[in-house]
Design a protein around this nucleic acid. Structure first.
Lengths: 161, 161
DNA sequence: GTTGAAAAGAGCATACA
DNA sequence: TGTATGCTCTTTTCAAC
Protein backbone atom coordinates (compact mmCIF):
# COMPACT_ATOMS: atom_id res chain seq x y z
CA UNK A 1 0.00 0.00 0.00
CA UNK A 2 2.87 2.35 0.74
CA UNK A 3 4.13 4.50 -2.06
CA UNK A 4 7.71 3.47 -2.64
CA UNK A 5 10.27 5.01 -4.88
CA UNK A 6 11.46 2.49 -7.41
CA UNK A 7 15.15 1.90 -8.03
CA UNK A 8 16.64 0.76 -11.31
CA UNK A 9 16.24 -2.91 -10.36
CA UNK A 10 12.51 -2.46 -9.75
CA UNK A 11 12.09 -0.54 -12.97
CA UNK A 12 13.97 -3.15 -14.98
CA UNK A 13 11.89 -5.94 -13.51
CA UNK A 14 8.62 -4.19 -14.32
CA UNK A 15 9.82 -3.40 -17.83
CA UNK A 16 10.57 -7.04 -18.55
CA UNK A 17 7.29 -8.13 -17.02
CA UNK A 18 5.53 -5.61 -19.24
CA UNK A 19 7.02 -7.38 -22.23
CA UNK A 20 5.93 -10.81 -21.06
CA UNK A 21 4.74 -11.45 -17.54
CA UNK A 22 4.13 -15.15 -17.94
CA UNK A 23 7.12 -16.52 -19.83
CA UNK A 24 9.95 -14.37 -18.53
CA UNK A 25 11.49 -16.32 -15.65
CA UNK A 26 13.05 -14.81 -12.56
CA UNK A 27 16.37 -16.27 -13.72
CA UNK A 28 16.22 -14.45 -17.06
CA UNK A 29 15.13 -11.24 -15.43
CA UNK A 30 17.93 -11.54 -12.89
CA UNK A 31 20.53 -11.86 -15.63
CA UNK A 32 19.19 -8.83 -17.44
CA UNK A 33 19.00 -6.53 -14.42
CA UNK A 34 22.10 -7.89 -12.68
CA UNK A 35 20.81 -9.51 -9.49
CA UNK A 36 20.15 -13.07 -8.32
CA UNK A 37 16.94 -14.84 -9.23
CA UNK A 38 15.85 -14.97 -5.61
CA UNK A 39 16.23 -11.22 -5.37
CA UNK A 40 13.99 -10.82 -8.39
CA UNK A 41 11.38 -12.98 -6.69
CA UNK A 42 11.63 -10.91 -3.51
CA UNK A 43 11.30 -7.65 -5.40
CA UNK A 44 8.30 -8.85 -7.37
CA UNK A 45 6.53 -9.90 -4.18
CA UNK A 46 7.20 -6.53 -2.67
CA UNK A 47 5.92 -4.74 -5.76
CA UNK A 48 2.78 -6.88 -5.65
CA UNK A 49 2.20 -6.23 -1.96
CA UNK A 50 2.73 -2.50 -2.31
CA UNK A 51 0.23 -2.41 -5.14
CA UNK A 52 2.61 -1.12 -7.80
CA UNK A 53 1.87 -4.35 -9.64
CA UNK A 54 -1.85 -4.93 -9.29
CA UNK A 55 -2.23 -8.13 -11.29
CA UNK A 56 -1.32 -9.99 -14.46
CA UNK A 57 -3.59 -10.29 -17.43
CA UNK A 58 -3.43 -11.79 -20.88
CA UNK A 59 -4.11 -9.58 -23.85
CA UNK A 60 -7.09 -11.30 -25.45
CA UNK A 61 -7.99 -10.78 -29.09
CA UNK A 62 -11.76 -11.08 -28.84
CA UNK A 63 -12.24 -10.89 -32.59
CA UNK A 64 -10.02 -13.92 -33.12
CA UNK A 65 -11.90 -15.66 -30.33
CA UNK A 66 -15.14 -15.29 -32.28
CA UNK A 67 -16.63 -12.25 -30.56
CA UNK A 68 -17.04 -9.82 -33.37
CA UNK A 69 -18.77 -7.01 -31.52
CA UNK A 70 -16.32 -4.92 -29.58
CA UNK A 71 -17.27 -1.41 -28.54
CA UNK A 72 -16.17 1.52 -26.47
CA UNK A 73 -19.13 3.17 -24.81
CA UNK A 74 -18.49 6.74 -23.70
CA UNK A 75 -20.83 8.19 -21.13
CA UNK A 76 -21.34 10.62 -18.29
CA UNK A 77 -21.80 9.83 -14.61
CA UNK A 78 -22.31 12.51 -11.95
CA UNK A 79 -19.06 12.89 -9.99
CA UNK A 80 -20.60 12.05 -6.64
CA UNK A 81 -22.10 8.79 -7.89
CA UNK A 82 -19.16 7.76 -9.97
CA UNK A 83 -17.55 5.10 -7.77
CA UNK A 84 -20.88 3.51 -7.03
CA UNK A 85 -21.94 3.40 -10.66
CA UNK A 86 -18.61 1.96 -11.72
CA UNK A 87 -19.08 -0.93 -9.32
CA UNK A 88 -22.51 -1.55 -10.79
CA UNK A 89 -21.54 -1.48 -14.43
CA UNK A 90 -18.68 -3.85 -13.72
CA UNK A 91 -21.41 -6.44 -13.16
CA UNK A 92 -22.89 -6.00 -16.62
CA UNK A 93 -22.18 -8.97 -18.84
CA UNK A 94 -19.51 -8.38 -21.47
CA UNK A 95 -17.87 -5.45 -19.69
CA UNK A 96 -14.11 -6.06 -19.61
CA UNK A 97 -12.63 -2.62 -18.93
CA UNK A 98 -13.77 0.64 -17.34
CA UNK A 99 -11.84 3.89 -17.39
CA UNK A 100 -12.86 7.04 -15.54
CA UNK A 101 -11.41 10.50 -16.06
CA UNK A 102 -11.65 13.69 -14.01
CA UNK A 103 -14.00 15.72 -16.19
CA UNK A 104 -17.66 16.52 -15.68
CA UNK A 105 -18.87 15.22 -19.02
CA UNK A 106 -17.98 12.03 -20.84
CA UNK A 107 -16.04 10.84 -17.82
CA UNK A 108 -16.50 7.09 -18.26
CA UNK A 109 -15.30 4.74 -21.02
CA UNK A 110 -16.60 1.20 -20.94
CA UNK A 111 -15.23 -1.58 -23.14
CA UNK A 112 -17.95 -4.07 -24.01
CA UNK A 113 -17.57 -7.40 -25.81
CA UNK A 114 -20.16 -9.68 -27.32
CA UNK A 115 -20.79 -12.24 -30.03
CA UNK A 116 -23.33 -10.18 -31.95
CA UNK A 117 -24.25 -6.57 -32.25
CA UNK A 118 -27.71 -7.04 -30.81
CA UNK A 119 -26.31 -8.63 -27.67
CA UNK A 120 -24.00 -5.69 -27.18
CA UNK A 121 -26.86 -3.26 -27.76
CA UNK A 122 -28.74 -4.85 -24.89
CA UNK A 123 -25.69 -4.44 -22.71
CA UNK A 124 -25.38 -0.80 -23.57
CA UNK A 125 -28.97 -0.34 -22.46
CA UNK A 126 -28.01 -2.05 -19.22
CA UNK A 127 -25.32 0.58 -18.72
CA UNK A 128 -27.90 3.29 -19.15
CA UNK A 129 -30.19 1.58 -16.64
CA UNK A 130 -27.41 1.60 -14.07
CA UNK A 131 -26.73 5.30 -14.21
CA UNK A 132 -24.44 5.94 -17.16
CA UNK A 133 -25.90 8.44 -19.58
CA UNK A 134 -24.43 7.14 -22.81
CA UNK A 135 -23.07 9.84 -25.09
CA UNK A 136 -21.74 7.72 -27.91
CA UNK A 137 -20.77 4.18 -28.88
CA UNK A 138 -17.68 3.57 -30.95
CA UNK A 139 -16.46 0.41 -32.65
CA UNK A 140 -13.03 -0.49 -31.36
CA UNK A 141 -10.57 -0.88 -34.20
CA UNK A 142 -7.35 -1.69 -32.44
CA UNK A 143 -5.69 -1.51 -29.07
CA UNK A 144 -1.98 -1.56 -28.44
CA UNK A 145 -0.22 -1.82 -25.12
CA UNK A 146 3.48 -1.39 -24.50
CA UNK A 147 6.03 -1.11 -21.68
CA UNK A 148 6.75 2.25 -20.12
CA UNK A 149 10.00 3.14 -21.89
CA UNK A 150 11.42 4.88 -18.84
CA UNK A 151 11.45 1.59 -16.94
CA UNK A 152 13.77 0.09 -19.56
CA UNK A 153 16.37 2.82 -19.56
CA UNK A 154 18.97 1.10 -17.41
CA UNK A 155 18.70 -2.19 -19.26
CA UNK A 156 21.10 -4.00 -21.56
CA UNK A 157 20.22 -4.62 -25.20
CA UNK A 158 16.93 -6.34 -25.75
CA UNK A 159 17.36 -9.31 -28.03
CA UNK A 160 14.25 -11.21 -27.10
CA UNK A 161 11.78 -8.78 -28.51
CA UNK B 1 -3.59 -16.83 -37.01
CA UNK B 2 -6.64 -18.90 -37.80
CA UNK B 3 -9.90 -17.93 -36.22
CA UNK B 4 -10.87 -20.84 -34.03
CA UNK B 5 -14.03 -21.41 -32.13
CA UNK B 6 -13.32 -21.81 -28.47
CA UNK B 7 -14.74 -24.67 -26.45
CA UNK B 8 -15.53 -24.54 -22.75
CA UNK B 9 -12.02 -25.69 -21.84
CA UNK B 10 -10.47 -22.82 -23.79
CA UNK B 11 -12.87 -20.34 -22.29
CA UNK B 12 -12.23 -21.56 -18.77
CA UNK B 13 -8.47 -21.36 -19.28
CA UNK B 14 -8.64 -17.80 -20.57
CA UNK B 15 -10.97 -16.82 -17.76
CA UNK B 16 -8.54 -18.04 -15.12
CA UNK B 17 -5.62 -16.41 -16.89
CA UNK B 18 -7.57 -13.17 -16.94
CA UNK B 19 -7.76 -13.36 -13.17
CA UNK B 20 -4.04 -13.99 -12.77
CA UNK B 21 -1.85 -14.96 -15.67
CA UNK B 22 1.38 -15.24 -13.72
CA UNK B 23 0.52 -17.13 -10.55
CA UNK B 24 -2.16 -19.51 -11.79
CA UNK B 25 -0.32 -22.70 -12.70
CA UNK B 26 -1.36 -25.15 -15.37
CA UNK B 27 -2.01 -27.66 -12.59
CA UNK B 28 -4.47 -25.38 -10.81
CA UNK B 29 -6.16 -24.46 -14.05
CA UNK B 30 -6.46 -28.11 -14.99
CA UNK B 31 -8.21 -28.93 -11.73
CA UNK B 32 -10.67 -26.10 -12.20
CA UNK B 33 -11.59 -26.85 -15.80
CA UNK B 34 -11.38 -30.63 -15.46
CA UNK B 35 -8.49 -31.66 -17.71
CA UNK B 36 -4.87 -32.69 -17.15
CA UNK B 37 -2.20 -30.06 -16.64
CA UNK B 38 -0.43 -31.04 -19.84
CA UNK B 39 -3.64 -30.50 -21.76
CA UNK B 40 -3.88 -27.03 -20.29
CA UNK B 41 -0.33 -26.32 -21.47
CA UNK B 42 -1.16 -27.55 -24.97
CA UNK B 43 -4.28 -25.44 -25.15
CA UNK B 44 -2.49 -22.33 -23.96
CA UNK B 45 0.20 -22.75 -26.60
CA UNK B 46 -2.43 -23.15 -29.24
CA UNK B 47 -4.24 -20.04 -28.06
CA UNK B 48 -0.97 -18.12 -28.13
CA UNK B 49 -0.07 -19.33 -31.60
CA UNK B 50 -3.49 -18.57 -33.00
CA UNK B 51 -3.27 -15.06 -31.59
CA UNK B 52 -6.29 -15.32 -29.32
CA UNK B 53 -3.86 -14.67 -26.47
CA UNK B 54 -1.50 -11.96 -27.68
CA UNK B 55 0.67 -11.50 -24.60
CA UNK B 56 0.75 -11.18 -20.84
CA UNK B 57 1.11 -7.89 -19.04
CA UNK B 58 1.14 -6.70 -15.45
CA UNK B 59 -1.34 -4.05 -14.39
CA UNK B 60 0.96 -1.28 -13.19
CA UNK B 61 -0.25 1.42 -10.80
CA UNK B 62 1.85 4.31 -12.05
CA UNK B 63 0.68 6.63 -9.28
CA UNK B 64 1.95 4.25 -6.61
CA UNK B 65 5.18 3.95 -8.57
CA UNK B 66 5.75 7.68 -8.24
CA UNK B 67 4.51 8.85 -11.63
CA UNK B 68 1.76 11.26 -10.74
CA UNK B 69 0.88 12.53 -14.18
CA UNK B 70 -1.35 10.11 -16.01
CA UNK B 71 -3.44 11.33 -18.91
CA UNK B 72 -5.70 10.19 -21.68
CA UNK B 73 -5.13 12.25 -24.81
CA UNK B 74 -8.01 12.13 -27.28
CA UNK B 75 -7.25 13.17 -30.82
CA UNK B 76 -8.10 12.82 -34.47
CA UNK B 77 -6.06 11.16 -37.19
CA UNK B 78 -7.16 10.96 -40.82
CA UNK B 79 -8.34 7.42 -41.54
CA UNK B 80 -5.85 6.79 -44.33
CA UNK B 81 -2.88 7.79 -42.18
CA UNK B 82 -4.07 6.10 -39.03
CA UNK B 83 -1.91 2.97 -38.95
CA UNK B 84 1.19 4.92 -39.82
CA UNK B 85 0.58 7.57 -37.20
CA UNK B 86 -0.14 4.97 -34.54
CA UNK B 87 3.25 3.40 -35.20
CA UNK B 88 4.88 6.78 -34.80
CA UNK B 89 3.20 7.82 -31.60
CA UNK B 90 4.04 4.46 -30.06
CA UNK B 91 7.62 5.74 -30.10
CA UNK B 92 6.83 8.81 -28.00
CA UNK B 93 8.22 8.51 -24.49
CA UNK B 94 5.64 7.79 -21.82
CA UNK B 95 3.04 6.33 -24.20
CA UNK B 96 1.82 3.03 -22.75
CA UNK B 97 -1.47 2.41 -24.53
CA UNK B 98 -3.12 3.42 -27.81
CA UNK B 99 -6.72 2.75 -28.79
CA UNK B 100 -8.23 3.49 -32.16
CA UNK B 101 -11.94 3.51 -32.99
CA UNK B 102 -13.78 3.53 -36.31
CA UNK B 103 -15.04 7.10 -36.34
CA UNK B 104 -13.85 10.07 -38.34
CA UNK B 105 -13.29 12.39 -35.40
CA UNK B 106 -11.67 11.71 -32.05
CA UNK B 107 -10.62 8.30 -33.26
CA UNK B 108 -7.45 7.86 -31.18
CA UNK B 109 -6.98 7.63 -27.39
CA UNK B 110 -3.43 7.70 -26.11
CA UNK B 111 -2.51 6.93 -22.51
CA UNK B 112 0.55 8.93 -21.43
CA UNK B 113 2.51 8.60 -18.18
CA UNK B 114 5.12 10.88 -16.66
CA UNK B 115 6.62 12.06 -13.40
CA UNK B 116 5.48 15.66 -13.72
CA UNK B 117 2.81 17.52 -15.59
CA UNK B 118 5.28 19.54 -17.62
CA UNK B 119 6.97 16.41 -18.89
CA UNK B 120 3.64 15.04 -20.03
CA UNK B 121 2.78 18.34 -21.70
CA UNK B 122 5.91 18.03 -23.82
CA UNK B 123 4.87 14.55 -24.78
CA UNK B 124 1.44 15.69 -25.82
CA UNK B 125 3.10 18.25 -28.09
CA UNK B 126 5.12 15.38 -29.53
CA UNK B 127 1.86 13.61 -30.39
CA UNK B 128 0.68 16.69 -32.22
CA UNK B 129 3.97 16.86 -34.13
CA UNK B 130 3.51 13.31 -35.32
CA UNK B 131 0.10 13.81 -36.82
CA UNK B 132 -2.47 13.56 -34.05
CA UNK B 133 -4.62 16.64 -33.82
CA UNK B 134 -5.28 16.70 -30.10
CA UNK B 135 -8.88 17.43 -29.18
CA UNK B 136 -8.66 17.17 -25.40
CA UNK B 137 -6.53 15.90 -22.57
CA UNK B 138 -8.13 14.22 -19.59
CA UNK B 139 -6.64 13.22 -16.26
CA UNK B 140 -7.10 9.51 -15.74
CA UNK B 141 -8.83 8.80 -12.47
CA UNK B 142 -9.09 5.06 -12.45
CA UNK B 143 -8.92 2.05 -14.71
CA UNK B 144 -10.39 -1.31 -13.98
CA UNK B 145 -9.93 -4.50 -15.96
CA UNK B 146 -11.80 -7.73 -15.45
CA UNK B 147 -12.32 -11.15 -17.03
CA UNK B 148 -14.93 -11.61 -19.72
CA UNK B 149 -17.73 -13.15 -17.67
CA UNK B 150 -18.87 -15.38 -20.52
CA UNK B 151 -15.54 -17.25 -20.38
CA UNK B 152 -16.23 -18.23 -16.77
CA UNK B 153 -19.68 -19.64 -17.26
CA UNK B 154 -18.81 -23.31 -17.24
CA UNK B 155 -16.54 -23.05 -14.22
CA UNK B 156 -16.88 -24.35 -10.68
CA UNK B 157 -17.11 -21.97 -7.76
CA UNK B 158 -14.33 -19.47 -7.58
CA UNK B 159 -12.71 -19.53 -4.16
CA UNK B 160 -9.37 -18.01 -5.06
CA UNK B 161 -10.67 -14.58 -5.92
C1' DG C 1 18.51 -6.42 1.53
C1' DT C 2 21.06 -9.78 -1.13
C1' DT C 3 23.03 -14.18 -2.15
C1' DG C 4 23.65 -19.12 -3.29
C1' DA C 5 22.41 -23.82 -2.60
C1' DA C 6 18.95 -27.45 -1.48
C1' DA C 7 14.25 -28.99 -1.70
C1' DA C 8 9.82 -28.80 -3.75
C1' DG C 9 7.12 -28.02 -7.45
C1' DA C 10 5.87 -26.84 -12.26
C1' DG C 11 6.55 -27.28 -17.23
C1' DC C 12 7.84 -29.92 -21.30
C1' DA C 13 8.45 -33.83 -24.34
C1' DT C 14 7.87 -38.40 -25.27
C1' DA C 15 5.04 -42.28 -25.59
C1' DC C 16 0.58 -44.32 -25.37
C1' DA C 17 -4.58 -44.85 -25.31
C1' DT D 1 -7.06 -35.29 -29.18
C1' DG D 2 -6.27 -36.14 -24.24
C1' DT D 3 -3.49 -38.46 -20.66
C1' DA D 4 0.53 -40.23 -17.96
C1' DT D 5 5.40 -40.68 -16.90
C1' DG D 6 10.03 -39.09 -16.58
C1' DC D 7 13.37 -35.30 -17.20
C1' DT D 8 14.53 -30.52 -16.87
C1' DC D 9 14.09 -26.08 -15.26
C1' DT D 10 12.01 -22.69 -12.03
C1' DT D 11 10.51 -21.23 -7.86
C1' DT D 12 10.83 -21.15 -3.00
C1' DT D 13 13.00 -21.30 1.21
C1' DC D 14 16.58 -20.33 4.42
C1' DA D 15 21.13 -19.89 6.58
C1' DA D 16 24.85 -16.75 5.98
C1' DC D 17 26.78 -12.41 4.53
Amino acid sequence: MTKRELDSVDRGIIYLLQQDSRNHTTTEIGERVGVAASTVANRIKKLERSGVIAGYHPRVDYEKAGYDSHFIVVGTVPAEKRDLVVDEIAEVSGVVNIRTVLTDEENVSVEVVGATQSVVEERIEALNDRGVSVVRTEMLKDEREQPFDHFGEGLAEDDSR
